[in-house]
Amino acid sequence: MPEPKSLRRDARDNVAKLRAAAMDIFLAKGLDASLYEIARAAGVSIGTLYHRFGTREGLIDAVIPDIAGSRLQDLAATVMAQDTARQRLEAFVKGMIDLQSEDPALNDAILRRYPDAVALHDICERSTTLGQQLVHDAHADGSLSPDFTDDDLFCLLWLAGIANREPHAPSGWQRVIEQALRAAWTTPT
């Protein structure tokens, strides 16, 4: 939610402090981090946070899409630099799981935990479209079993996202996802 330029200087400063605090805390703890903690870290009241951003989703849309978009664009560039459809799909899965593991806020975005954060949803939709295209390309070249669908891909990524959020997830969850993907190929590596 862009702020009008006519805000008083102290109000602009509060918005900047809230954005910085939200960025730090969301990236460290995920998108369900305490809004009270964000306001406290910014040195403002919770009322100021709500007055300036309206809702949690408004705050998410104000701070996360740029960072998420940048990270997902970097992943897309890495993926598309691969030589074969199989290598591209494998790089996409590995890259998405790495992002989910390293970045709680991006993991929450990929899991669509806040569907009313419209700007964030639009950015994640681009990665969904890329994943669908990668599955289609691997089907087209015959390297991926026709039984493996883009829904299967997103189920694997969703399972990885949930496991990344869960501190008591079984330690072998990544191996299970790797085995599921490995079984989807029509030819061994």
Results as ranks from 00 to 15, higher is better:
A16K: 08
D137P: 05
L49F: 01
K29A: 00
A16M: 04
V79L: 09
L35F: 05
T84A: 12
L144E: 06
D137R: 12
D137Q: 12
K17P: 09
L181D: 13
V118I: 11
I177S: 12
S143P: 06
E102W: 05
D108S: 09
F26I: 09
W185M: 13
H51T: 15
V93E: 08
T128N: 08
S6T: 15
T189C: 13
L72F: 08
D83M: 01
R12D: 00
T129N: 13
C155A: 13
H168P: 05
E125M: 10
Q100F: 10
L181A: 13
R175S: 14
A28W: 06
Q87T: 14
A22H: 06
G54E: 10
D137E: 15
A138I: 11
D152P: 01
W158C: 09
Y50R: 08
V44G: 04
G95V: 06
D116M: 11
V135G: 11
I38A: 04
D32W: 07
N107S: 07
D103R: 00
A109R: 07
V15A: 15
A119D: 13
T55D: 06
D116C: 05
G142M: 01
T48L: 01
W173M: 03
D150T: 10
A91Q: 14
T187A: 14
E3I: 10
D10F: 10
D150G: 03
T149E: 04
I38K: 01
A22G: 02
L181W: 15
D66R: 09
G161W: 11
E166S: 15
A39C: 08
G43M: 04
G95C: 12
G142N: 10
R182A: 15
Q132M: 11
G47L: 02
L35A: 00
A11K: 11
T78G: 08
K94R: 15
A180P: 01
Q132E: 12
T149W: 03
K29F: 05
M96S: 11
N107E: 05
A39M: 05
L7N: 09
M80D: 15
R8Y: 06
